[in-house]
């Protein structure tokens, strides 16, 4: 298991009039190498949960085990936080807003140098990371502030990729991007998953959840209301639920209801559906 969350509670503004329970007895496990979706309405506790995972927030109660690291509510006992953050990295929503260096390569190398790499080593790794997100030499010496929104986001993601974490948490990686920008980012994420990384993606976009994730967890008011296979989630929830079923999956469900021999567990994208349709049409 890559991540084990046990009876996690997180309370904001404890013992003040503004007290608010953001996570209410959350327990879940995420296997190594999986691609997991984390879904729920704004304010359901998703962001709080992922910030607990790399100790940006310290649990009010309960514990988290991330491979060899342990996070509990005793702040002093949480050592090796820096190594934890190298092992599990968090890409925030709109990460392009965290860029600050005068050149793209320096910005990407910044994280590496924080984790103890020497400058030339860091720059070299930064170049590799930038190439992997599709930004070539032309970009290395440019200022991040003169790039387009999509390019800046790729630089920011490269900054995290360069650190080479084993677990990558992405908060709304496609928010605010146009179709092309989203596609670029998602194919990058998919590549990282194929390279063996564990991916956790927080998103509102159910099409992305269906297309990419194997498993997902649904949070509501700080509680986990579903944990299991993504297709199973869409299969079990009703139309009027807060979670919108992707139209593709709706169609698959309709076919299943009509008695078509469709394997709903395998439907991830339109190609999958058409393949199955073709297989029964040939008969």
């Amino acid at each position: 298991m890559a991540i084990e969350v046990k009876n996690l509670f997180y309370i904001y503004g404890r013992k003040t009039p503004y007290q608010q329970t953001a996570l209410d007895d959350v327990s879940l496990t995420i296997p190594t190498g999986s691609f997991v979706g984390l879904i729920g309405r704004t304010g359901s506790g998703k962001s709080t949960l992922v910030q607990n995972l790399n100790a940006l927030l310290i649990p009010t109660e309960g514990e988290i085990i991330v491979d060899e690291f342990h996070i509990g509510n005793k702040k002093r006992k949480n050592k090796k936080i820096k190594q934890l953050r190298k092992h599990l990295s968090l890409v925030f929503q709109f990460p392009e807003y965290q860029l600050f260096e005068e050149t793209v390569e320096k910005d990407v190398a910044f994280g590496l140098m924080n984790f103890g790499y020497k400058q030339n080593e860091a720059i070299e790794l930064a170049h590799k990371a930038l190439l992997s997100v599709g930004l070539d030499e032309k970009y290395f010496k440019r200022s991040p502030f003169e790039l387009s929104g999509g390019e800046r986001r790729r630089v920011a993601i490269a900054g995290i990729l360069a650190i080479n974490p084993d677990i990558l948490v992405l908060d709304e990686p496609t928010a605010g991007l146009d179709v092309k920008g989203s596609k670029d980012i998602m194919s990058l994420v998919k590549q990282m998953h194929e390279d063996g990384k564990t991916i956790i993606m927080v998103t509102h976009d159910m099409d992305l959840v269906l297309r990419y994730t194997e498993q997902c967890f649904v949070l509501k008011d700080g509680k986990v209301t579903f944990g299991g296979s993504t297709n199973q989630l869409f299969d079990t929830i009703s139309d009027d639920s807060a979670i919108e079923i992707p139209p593709l999956f709706k169609l698959a469900k309709k076919l299943k209801d009509r008695g078509a021999p469709i394997n709903i567990e395998n439907i991830k994208n339109a190609e999958d559906l058409i393949k199955q349709v073709n297989s029964w049409r040939k008969k």
Binding site: N54, R85, F92, P95, Y97, F115
Partner: peptide, 13 residues
């Protein structure tokens, strides 16, 4: 708060 956390994820202390 958000930027501090984002930079902390990049190893800033």
């Amino acid at each position: 708060d958000r930027i501090m956390k984002a930079q902390a994820s990049r190893g800033v202390d």
